[in-house]
Simulated scan of single mutants.
Amino acid sequence: MAGKWLDVALTQLGKSYHSSGAFVAFVMNTSKIETNAQNSQWSPTLNDLVQEVPDLKKIENARPGDLLFWGKLSHPYSVGIYIGGSHFISVTEKDAVVKVQVLNDNWCPEFVGSVF
């Protein structure tokens, strides 16, 4: 299941989104990943995305396909999709374009959400 999700995410490289939440919601909805919430579509709002993920855990336990969240559980400010090997795909803060990025100590996510 994560493979299809990641394939959809990778087809978005170089495209612009108004937010990281909008990008992740597009990938989730296009991949037909079921949400934990009562509605049938994933929300682009980060606070809603956190509520829609059934399994939250620490970054050390991230697996490819997991959602990486930056910020507090009650107020996340960015989200990306972990692709493995310390890499993730998300909308860049600087230019709002989908790119593969590298996790580092200066900008490491606070928690991870898994839907698998």
Rank of each mutant, 00 (worst) to 15 (best):
M1W: 06
M1R: 12
M1V: 10
A2N: 15
G3I: 14
W5G: 02
D7W: 07
L10P: 00
T11Y: 04
Q12R: 12
G14V: 08
G14A: 06
G14M: 06
K15T: 15
K15G: 05
K15E: 15
K15M: 13
Y17A: 10
Y17Q: 09
S19W: 09
S19A: 14
S19I: 10
S20L: 03
G21S: 07
F23L: 03
V24M: 04
F26S: 14
F26E: 15
F26V: 05
V27G: 07
V27F: 11
V27R: 03
M28G: 01
N29Q: 02
T30S: 14
S31F: 02
S31P: 01
K32C: 07
I33T: 08
N36Y: 11
N36D: 09
A37D: 14
A37I: 02
Q41M: 09
S43E: 04
P44G: 01
T45M: 06
T45C: 05
L46D: 05
L46V: 08
L46K: 01
D48I: 00
L49K: 02
V50W: 00
V50N: 01
V50E: 03
Q51F: 01
E52H: 00
P54Q: 00
D55H: 11
D55I: 06
L56A: 08
K57G: 10
K58E: 15
I59K: 08
I59H: 03
E60N: 02
N61R: 05
P64F: 01
G65E: 00
D66H: 01
D66M: 01
F69E: 11
G71T: 03
K72C: 00
L73G: 06
L73M: 09
S74Q: 11
H75W: 05
P76C: 04
S78D: 15
V79P: 08
G80F: 13
G80K: 10
G80L: 05
I81V: 14
Y82M: 07
Y82F: 12
I83L: 12
I83A: 02
G85M: 05
G85L: 07
G85N: 15
S86E: 13
S86V: 04
I89A: 07
T92K: 13
T92L: 08
E93T: 12
E93K: 10
D95I: 03
A96I: 00
V97I: 15
K99R: 14
Q101G: 06
Q101R: 12
L103T: 12
N104H: 13
N104R: 08
N104S: 09
W107G: 08
C108K: 12
C108A: 12
P109R: 04
E110R: 03
V112G: 05
V112D: 04
G113T: 03
S114C: 12
